[in-house]
Simulated scan of single mutants.
Amino acid sequence: MQFKSTKKDKIELIQRHFTPLIGSEITGYSIAQLWCEENRAWDDWMDLPFRLHFKDTKLSISWRKFDELMIEEGEALPFPTTDLQVRWLLNPIKRINGIIGQKLKRVCLSPGHMNIGSHQCEIWVDLILTTEENQSLVIYNNLDENGLKLSSNENMLEAAVCCPNPF
């Protein structure tokens, strides 16, 4: 499993994994939960990959550090979980379930910004999956873990369209 940090490498990674899936139906997703002994309860654990399901393919998508992206086919993990109690839930986040059953139309990478002292840096940390119904699932870097949101009006002005390849 390799994480990519440059814009160019992220675009190539996105194109490699998502180009064959353009036009495919999103059949679901799964997220991890970790057993928290202190609370005696399961907690969402967004440090592990967000798993996006298509009919014959499952992609594991994960952000780490400030701007590193990993996409792998299957059930890849960025680190071992052998000593932890982890379970995977299918479609548990109601606010993003609108993407299920829709066909993938476009995948983009969009920038965010980070301040280092008085200098603002552009970092490419939003993976935007848009369906034929113009719903956008944004899988973003939420400070070293995955963040998720569903939008029907995602600002695409600065986005780099990765798939289908615009060239």
Rank of each mutant, 00 (worst) to 15 (best):
R95W: 14
H119A: 07
P49V: 03
N141Y: 05
G101K: 03
D67Q: 09
N146R: 08
E75L: 04
I96R: 02
S110K: 03
I100N: 04
P78L: 06
Q85A: 14
T131W: 01
F66I: 10
D43T: 08
C36A: 06
V125F: 10
S60F: 00
P166I: 11
F3I: 07
C163Q: 02
D43F: 10
M46K: 04
T27Y: 02
R87D: 05
Q2G: 09
N39T: 15
I71F: 01
N146K: 10
C121E: 15
L34R: 07
L59G: 01
I116W: 13
T27I: 09
I96Y: 02
C121A: 13
V86T: 11
K58F: 02
A76P: 01
K4E: 15
L109G: 09
Q135Y: 14
W63M: 08
A159V: 04
P92R: 00
G28V: 04
T131R: 05
L137W: 00
L13W: 10
Q102D: 12
L143T: 14
E72D: 04
C163R: 01
R40K: 15
T6S: 11
V107W: 00
F18W: 03
G117L: 09
I61N: 03
S24Y: 12
R106E: 08
C36G: 04
S151V: 09
E25L: 09
V125A: 14
E38W: 07
S152M: 11
I26P: 01
D44Y: 14
F66C: 11
E132C: 01
T19G: 05
L77T: 00
D67F: 08
I93Y: 06
M156K: 12
L137E: 04
F3V: 10
N39A: 15
W63P: 00
I128Q: 11
L89E: 12
A41E: 07
I11D: 06
L48I: 13
T27H: 08
M70Y: 07
N141L: 09
N155L: 11
L150M: 02
C36E: 06
K7T: 12
K94R: 05
S152N: 10
N142G: 06
D9K: 05
K55E: 15
T57S: 13
C163V: 06
G112N: 12
I26T: 01
W88R: 07
L84D: 12
W42Q: 07
S136W: 01
T27L: 08
K105G: 09
L104T: 05
I61T: 03
A76Q: 07
I123L: 15
L52A: 03
P164K: 01
K8I: 13
K103P: 08
N97A: 03
C36R: 08
F3Q: 04
E122W: 08
M46D: 07
Y140L: 12
